[in-house]
Design a protein around this nucleic acid. Structure first.
Length: 646
RNA sequence: GCCGGGAUAGCUCAGAAGGCAGAGCAGCUGAUUCGUAAUCAGCAGGUCGUGGGUUCAACUCCCAUUCCCGGCUCCA
C-alpha cells in the first residue's frame, strides 16, 4: 500500500507499477499534468519509473515547485546538450546540472562557442521542445553503459563511469540524444515553455586547474514565458543595484588604471561612509573588551618565514627591498599582534587578550578574480586576534558570534553560516581539531544559529566559521569569519604563566566581523541600493531655497544644523525646486529641507523624506531631533548605541 | 592565472565598405526667481584604451599589450 500525499486513500501498490499509474489512481487528470516527478523518501523518480515496493508515502512533485523547476532545468540542460551535439557532432559532453537560477552544461569542443552559436543552439532547442519528445530512462549494467559511450566516443562520460561504484546505471534518452544521468527528468521536452541561453564561460573539467578547460554554456528555463520574463526583469533590477554602477553614480569610489587594478580610490562620500563604519567598529570593539592596536605595514621577510606565510602564501604577497633587507608587505595582521603579545610575560590572569586592528593589508589576488570593491588587492580588515586559555575558547567564540549577529542585525543582513572542518592537508592533533570544531558548533547551537558544514574546507591550521552575505546578483561573499589556530602560538612560542607557575600555550582565534571594509561596503551599497540609512548616509540632509530671497536663511539654518553634528549640504542654485528635489532624490539623500517665504516667516523648514513623503513644517530643533531619532533607530533593536557626530 | 566577450566625450550610448566623429545627461555662459523627480538658449568637450604594423589614408584590418565584464580556480 502507498499513500499519495494530498489524496484521501491509500492505494494498492502492484509490482512494476509506475509513478504515473499510482498518481492516476489518486489524482485527477488535470492534476497529474502538473506533476513532473515523484518523491519517495529522499529519492526522486520519473513519472515513468517503477515505484519502489518499499515506498510508503509518495509526494508528487509539481512543476510549480522549486523541486519541479530544478527537474525542468536539468532537463533543459539535456535538451541543450542534444542541440549542441546535433549542430557540432565533434563536441564532447561532460556534465550539466541545474543551478540556482538556471542550468549549465560543460562541453569539450575544438573552438570557442560564439554568441551566434548560442542563437543556433537556442533555435535547435526550440525545435526539440516543440516536438515534445519523451524522456526515456534506460537502466543498464556498467558494462553496457560503457559500450554505449565508447561507441559515442564520449570520453568524459567513460571517465565518470569509471569512478562510479554502482553495478547498474541509468541513461536518459530523448530524440537521438543519450546521456548518463541519475535523473529524474520531465515526462517530455514540451514542458519547457521558456528557455534562454545566457552566456558562455570557461570552466575546468572537474573544477581542477590542471585539467582541460571546457566551455560552459549557461542558460535558464521556466515553465512559462511569464516566469522567464519576470526573472529577466528581476535581473535587470538587480543590475541597477550593482555597487560598481552606484559607486560611480553616487560618487563614492573609483578605480584607476593608472593606480593599478584592485586598488580602490575612495571619494569624499565613500570615504566618509567608511570613516563612520570604522568609527563605529572601534567604539563597539572597545565596548566589548577589545584593545585597539596597530602594527607596521611592512615586516621583515624572516618573520614571514617564521610564521609559515612565506612558504604557504608567498605568491599572494608583495615584497619590497631596502638596504639589502627584504620586507613583506603584510597580507594579514596576525604577526604584529603576536609580537605585541610577546612583548612581555603574560599571566593566566591577563587572558583573554583581544587585539583589534583596522589593518590595511595587500594581497596579490589573481587578476581574473578582481571584482569591484568585493575583491580588491588592497583592503582593510576589521581584524582581531584573541589569545586565550583553552578553557576560555568556547566563551570567546560565543562572544564573537554574538558580535557578528548583533552587527548583521543592525544592517538587516540575511546571511549564510558555514562551519569548515579539517582538510586533508592539515597540522595539529586530532584532539585539538575535535575540541575546537566542537567549540565552534556549540557556540552556534547555543545562539540558535543554523549552519551548514563544509567538510574539509577549514584552514590548514584550524577549523572556522564563515559568514557569507549575498550581493545583488545572489553571489555569496565571505565577510565575517572566526578561525581557530593552534599553529601560530606554537611557531611564535607564545606562552602564559599558569596558576601553578608553569608555562602554558594560549589558543588563538583569528576573527573579522565585517570582514574587509571595502567588501562590506560593496555588499552594503547593493543591500541598500545606494540609499544608506541616515546614520551612514554621507549627506543626511540637503537644504534648498525656492528663490534667492531665502538664500541667506538656508545658509543660517545649515550652520545651525551642522553645529549639532548633522551632515548637511546646501543647494542654493537658481533652479526650480522640482529640479533640485529630483537631484537630491537621485543622490538618495535621506532628507530634503526646503525654505520658501512661508518657512522663513515661521522660522522653520519644510521636511521631505527620501521617497517623497512629506513631514511638513518643522522648526530647526525639531528637524535635528527627527534626524537624530532616525540615526538611532537601527541601533535600538539590537541594544546597541552609536552616533557619528562631527 | 585560465576561457570567452568588451573598451567611442565626465556619465549612458549611437555610428563608421578603410575617406572631416554623433546624441542625451552632466559642465561652462547667459536669460529665467520658479513650492517638492528635469526652465530655455548658446558654448565647449574626443589622439575612438595603449603601442606597433599594413595602407595614399586606420576609430574601422593585423599583431601585441593594459584595463573592464561574465565564468572557472582562489579567497576577506
Amino acid at each position: 500500500m502507498v499513500k499519495v500525499s494530498g489524496a484521501p486513500e491509500e492505494i494498492q501498490l502492484s509490482t512494476g507499477a509506475t509513478c504515473r499509474e499510482i498518481l492516476s489512481k489518486a489524482l485527477s487528470g488535470k492534476k497529474i499534468k502538473e506533476m513532473v516527478a515523484c518523491r519517495c523518501g529522499d529519492r526522486l523518480y520519473d513519472l515513468s519509473s517503477q515505484v519502489d515496493e518499499h515506498c510508503e508515502v509518495m509526494d508528487p512533485v509539481p512543476l510549480s515547485s522549486l523541486e519541479g523547476l530544478k527537474v525542468l532545468r536539468h532537463s533543459a540542460a539535456h535538451i541543450m546538450a542534444e542541440a549542441v551535439k546535433a549542430l557540432f557532432p565533434s563536441a564532447k559532453v561532460t556534465i550539466g546540472p541545474d543551478i540556482e537560477h538556471g542550468f549549465y552544461y560543460d562541453f569539450d569542443f575544438e573552438r570557442p562557442f560564439t554568441p551566434e552559436d548560442l542563437e543556433k543552439i537556442e533555435a535547435r532547442m526550440s525545435e526539440s521542445i516543440s516536438k515534445d519528445l519523451p524522456f526515456e530512462r534506460l537502466v543498464m549494467s556498467m558494462d553496457e553503459a560503457k559500450k554505449v559511450f565508447l561507441k559515442l566516443n564520449e570520453t568524459y562520460k567513460l571517465e565518470i563511469l569509471d569512478e562510479l561504484e554502482e553495478d547498474q546505471v541509468s541513461l536518459y534518452k530523448h530524440g537521438d540524444f543519450i546521456d548518463l544521468c541519475r535523473g529524474p527528468h520531465l515526462p517530455s521536452t514540451g514542458y519547457v515553455k521558456a528557455c534562454k541561453l545566457t552566456s558562455v564561460a570557461g570552466a575546468y573539467w572537474r573544477g581542477d586547474e590542471k585539467r582541460p578547460m571546457l566551455q560552459r554554456i549557461y542558460g535558464t528555463a521556466f515553465a512559462s514565458q511569464k516566469d522567464l520574463k519576470k526573472h529577466l526583469t528581476r535581473l535587470e533590477e538587480a543590475r541597477k543595484r550593482d555597487h560598481r554602477k552606484l559607486g560611480v553614480q553616487l560618487d563614492l569610489f573609483s578605480f584607476s588604471e593608472e593606480a593599478g587594478p584592485g586598488m580602490p580610490l575612495f571619494h569624499p562620500k565613500g570615504a566618509l561612509i567608511r570613516t563612520i563604519l570604522e568609527d563605529f567598529e572601534r567604539k563597539e570593539h572597545l565596548r566589548r573588551g577589545y584593545h585597539v592596536v596597530q602594527g607596521p605595514q611592512i615586516l621583515r621577510q624572516e618573520l614571514w618565514e617564521k610564521s609559515g606565510h612565506y612558504d604557504n602564501y608567498r605568491e599572494n604577497m608583495y615584497f619590497t627591498q631596502i638596504d639589502e633587507q627584504v620586507y613583506g608587505i603584510k597580507p594579514m595582521n596576525c604577526l604584529s599582534h603576536m609580537l605585541i603579545y610577546k612583548s612581555r610575560l603574560r599571566s593566566y590572569r591577563d587572558l583573554p587578550l583581544r587585539y583589534f586592528e583596522l589593518g590595511r593589508v595587500h594581497r596579490h589576488e589573481k587578476s581574473g578574480v578582481l571584482h569591484g570593491l568585493l575583491r580588491v588587492r588592497e583592503f582593510t580588515q576589521d581584524d582581531a586576534h584573541i589569545l586565550c586559555r583553552p578553557d576560555q575558547l568556547q566563551q570567546e567564540i560565543t562572544g564573537v558570534v554574538n558580535f557578528v549577529r548583533d552587527v548583521m542585525g543592525l544592517f538587516g543582513f540575511e546571511y549564510v553560516v558555514e562551519v569548515s572542518t579539517r582538510p586533508e592537508k592539515s597540522i595539529g592533533s586530532g584532539d585539538a581539531w575535535e575540541k575546537s570544531t566542537n567549540a565552534l558548533t556549540s557556540a552556534l547551537d547555543a545562539l540558535d544559529m543554523p549552519y551548514g558544514i563544509n567538510p574539509g574546507d577549514g584552514a590548514f591550521y584550524g577549523p572556522k566559521i564563515d559568514i557569507k552575505l549575498k550581493d545583488a546578483l545572489d553571489r555569496k561573499w565571505q565577510c565575517a569569519t572566526v578561525q581557530c589556530d593552534f599553529t601560530l602560538p606554537e611557531r611564535f612560542d607564545l606562552t602564559y604563566t599558569g596558576e601553578d607557575g608553569q608555562k602554558y600555550r594560549p589558543v588563538m582565534l583569528h576573527r573579522v566581523v565585517l570582514g574587509a571594509i571595502e567588501r562590506f561596503m560593496g555588499v552594503l551599497i547593493e543591500h541598500y541600493g545606494g540609499a544608506f540609512p541616515t546614520w551612514l548616509a554621507p549627506v543626511q540632509a540637503r537644504l534648498m531655497n525656492i528663490t534667492d530671497v531665502q538664500s541667506h536663511y538656508i545658509h543660517e539654518c545649515a550652520d545651525e544644523l551642522r553645529q549639532k553634528g548633522i551632515r548637511i549640504e546646501v543647494d542654493d542654485r537658481n533652479e526650480k525646486l522640482g529640479y533640485k528635489v529630483r537631484e537630491a532624490q537621485m543622490e538618495k539623500i535621506p532628507y530634503v529641507l526646503v525654505a520658501g517665504d512661508q518657512e522663513v516667516a515661521n522660522s522653520g523648514l519644510n521636511v521631505r523624506l527620501r521617497g517623497g513623503r512629506s513631514l511638513g513644517l518643522m522648526s530647526i530643533q525639531e528637524v535635528a531631533e527627527q534626524i537624530f531619532q532616525d540615526m538611532d533607530e537601527p541601533f535600538k533593536k539590537g541594544g546597541l548605541s552609536y552616533r557619528y557626530l562631527y
